[in-house]
Design a protein around this nucleic acid. Structure first.
Length: 694
RNA sequence: GCGGGCGUGGCGGAACGGUAGACGCAACGGACUUAAAAUCCGUUUUCCGUAAGGAAGUGUGGGUUCAAGUCCCACCGCCCGCACCA
């Protein structure tokens, strides 16, 4: 029995040094051994690692070590998702250059990760803000452009009139810019889009093949893509006094069975027809402005009352000669979905019902439970929506009477197709991916706008288009736009003065292909075919569920786009996905509501008080670690006190990896004792075996 | 509103329809120590009982079954995602 104790402060650096010096974790392609690619979502270099990183990277590390022990050739790389707003905010607030800020943070975090004893291949480290990384992103974008996977179009954006920039939906709080506090406007802006919708169907159906992904994530993506089967058809239009118009009104519906219950049509305020008519109708123009001012945040949508503005036009009912439907511009019709126009059937759609009650439109039920007397079946303030399994039939619907809903849909579709006014159509909720950002700290979009030649891609031999270092951040708006010289270039096509695109890419692009770059991080192509063939796809991907849709969907699209342009030959980048739970911790606050560090809370006779002020404290919930709630625990402190192995052991042993883990002082101490026990066990066994090599 | 998930000791959590609470943490008792830490041994679902033992018990209420934490129905609570998508 030894009385020695394990000293991580001595042992951990010694082993970490050994691993580095002997390049223990550097991966090389080796066709004679089976490969295993384990990847954790790479971090944003905020400056310090947090407990979530510790948990995430420990899980990946254990898998990497396990697979190595099994004889696999393991690739386990690390890099930095290094472009983004916080670096630019630091520049605005503290005058630090985003590049300097970012690389300082990277250095600090790299040291922290090394202290964690992770078996990472640091020879493959990449940072997305490195021109040697983003030049490939630019080259691929140009090829995507040629392949028709990129589009420039005008779209509605959240515009901050004070900061002169587009804001993401998440940056709009209560209709105001999160930074400036200015009321956000909807504005039309020409933006670059990646045509992810070209893959809607495939991204959806291929989900079934991702059997090693969490069901939850697959379902979330499925709902996000949002496939619906319906009918697109058009109404003949006429004026109030019955004069027919040349143009027709095209709508999209999944409830064509309810056509006999239609009592109005509604178009989006942004619909072409509404724009056109508003030129001569000041009331309509005012209505459109009102809708635009409302913003797009969830709360405003929820609170907004259904409102419309009658256009003075009427749509002829396709099957009832005596019926015509008033056409409105309405605030609840979205331009981005379907045709931006609907027919309203109030009896069977709650929104349509609210609208009909407000404008006193007829409510005619056309679907009812089987056996109901059509004459006595009425709809009050709640629309009758049939649920799956309900036994319902069509009523008040001429030739559809008595049919089931699916039969009625089929009949209407058939008739409209025969009449040449409609067609069955599959619609998706998924939109194209707007990737333009009016920001400095991102990858420059490699195109040039020429008055004569239009949009001209930067020739590949002139890549990368690098960011100017001497940008200034003292004015609101895009520093690239303000830069005195950077944007002025000669057109690569005609040589005349032209203007460089000053928008940069959405940083989600950077993270949509980094997994491929890790296969050959120093190559002069995005990824070499040999390396990709050997290492791709990622055998185990690990990260937070908060990326279930955006990052993981974009990456799936990007792999397809790269495959379509010959850069890759893999459609699904991540063969197996694991989403780990969050790290949570107790919270405390004073009676006046200020958050207090858990370390400052002490329990006196069953009551919590502040350790130094003695102020009584309220116990808050156990919540995700966040600076604002002051319940973060710094991994560095834990590693300094107990060593990395203890922190790692606690993260793995306390709670199943997919669930939220509560960080507790007692749990950490328990993990520390356990680490000691293991060490003694091994040390004693070694002593008995006649040697000691701790 | 729509979709999904989860409710078991003080805590993390185990239980092919077959002894509920494995294993671990914490806590408590004991040993060792001048003392503490560490370590080792033991106790630990709740209630009654000195004990032997008994009773209750997996969010709530029903049901299926020889047998239910597990299967079915209804409800309650919490969490997550989407949300005026026609």
């Amino acid at each position: 029995m030894t009385t020695e104790r394990y000293n991580p402060r001595e042992a951990e650096p010694r082993w970490q040094k050994y691993w580095t010096e002997n390049r223990c974790f550097e991966a090389r392609e080796d066709a004679s051994r089976p490969k295993y690619y384990v990847l954790e979502m790479f971090p944003y270099p905020s400056g310090r690692i947090h407990m979530g990183h510790v948990r995430n990277y420990t899980m990946g590390d254990v898998i990497a070590r396990f697979r190595r022990a099994m004889g696999y050739n393991v690739l386990h790389p690390m890099g930095w998702d290094a472009f983004g707003m916080p670096a630019e905010n630091a520049a605005i607030e503290r005058g630090v250059h985003p590049k300097a800020w970012t690389y300082e943070n990277i250095a600090a975090m790299r040291a922290q990760l090394k202290n964690m004893g992770l078996s990472l291949d640091w020879s493959r480290e990449i940072a997305t803000c490195d021109p040697d990384y983003y030049r490939h992103e630019q080259a691929m974008f140009i090829d995507f452009l040629k392949a028709g996977l990129v589009e420039r179009k005008v779209s509605m954006v959240n515009w901050d009139p004070v900061d002169h920039t587009v804001l993401a939906n998440e940056q709009v709080i209560d209709g105001r810019g999160w930074r400036s506090g200015a009321l956000v406007e909807k504005r039309e802006l020409a933006q670059w889009f990646l045509k992810i919708t070209a893959y809607s169907d495939e991204l959806l159906t291929a989900l079934d093949g991702l059997t090693r992904w969490p069901e939850k994530v697959r379902l979330m993506q499925k709902n996000w893509i949002g496939r619906s089967e319906g009918l697109r058809f058009s109404f003949a239009l006429e004026t109030a006094d019955g004069k027919p118009l040349d143009e027709r009104l095209t709508v999209y519906t999944t409830r064509h069975d309810t056509i006999f219950g239609a009592s109005f049509c509604a178009i989006s305020a942004d619909h072409e027809l509404a724009r056109h008519l508003s030129e001569k109708d000041e009331g309509l123009a005012a209505f459109r402005r009102e809708v635009a001012a409302l913003g797009t945040s969830e709360e405003t949508i929820e609170r907004a009352e259904k409102k419309g503005h009658a256009l003075g036009l009427y749509a002829r009912h396709p099957f009832r000669k005596d019926v015509r439907l008033p056409v409105y511009a309405a605030n609840f019709v979205l331009m981005g979905y379907g045709e931006g126009a609907i027919f309203g059937c109030p009896a069977h759609d709650q929104r349509d019902l609210d609208f009909a009650r407000k404008y006193d439109l007829p409510v005619l039920p056309v679907v009812a439970p089987k056996g109901t007397d059509p004459a006595s079946f009425t709809v009050g303030s709640e629309a009758f929506i049939e649920k799956e399994g309900d036994n319902t039939v069509l009523i008040n619907s001429d030739f559809l009477d008595g049919m089931s809903v699916p039969a009625a849909k089929a009949e209407i579709a058939k008739r409209m197709e025969a009449m040449g006014i409609g067609e069955r159509r599959v619609n998706f909720r998924l939109r194209d991916w707007g990737v333009s950002r009016q920001r400095y700290w991102g990858c420059p979009i490699p195109v040039i706008h020429c008055a004569a030649c239009g949009i001209v891609p930067v020739p590949k031999d002139q890549l990368p288009v690098t960011l100017p270092e001497d940008a200034s951040f003292d004015k609101p708006g895009n520093p690239l736009e303000h830069h005195p010289t950077w944007k002025h270039v000669a057109c690569p096509s005609c040589g005349k003065p032209a203007k460089r695109e000053t928008d940069t890419f959405d940083t989600f692009i950077d993270s949509s292909w980094y997994y491929a770059r890790f296969c050959s991080p120093h190559a002069d192509v995005p990824v070499t075919p040999e390396a990709a063939r050997y290492w791709m796809g990622v055998d185990q991907y690990i990260g937070g569920v908060e990326h279930a849709i955006l990052h993981l969907l974009y990456s799936r699209f990007y792999a397809r786009a790269m495959t379509a342009t010959g850069y890759l030959d893999v459609k699904e980048p991540f063969e197996s996905l694991f989403t780990q739970g969050m790290v949570i911790h107790e919270t405390f606050r004073t009676l006046s509501g200020e958050w207090v560090l858990p370390a400052d809370a002490v329990n006196q006779d069953g009551k919590w008080v502040h350790a130094t002020t003695g102020e009584p404290l309220e116990v808050g919930g156990v919540e995700k670690m966040s600076k604002s709630k002051k319940n973060v625990v710094d991994p560095d402190e834990i590693i300094a006190r107990f060593g990395a192995d203890t922190a790692r052991w606690f993260m793995l042993s306390d709670t199943p990896p997919e669930r939220d883990i509560e960080w507790t002082e007692a749990g950490a101490e328990g993990a520390w004792r356990f680490t000691q026990r293991i060490w003694r066990l091994v040390n004693d066994a070694a002593a008995h075996a006649g040697g000691s090599d701790a």
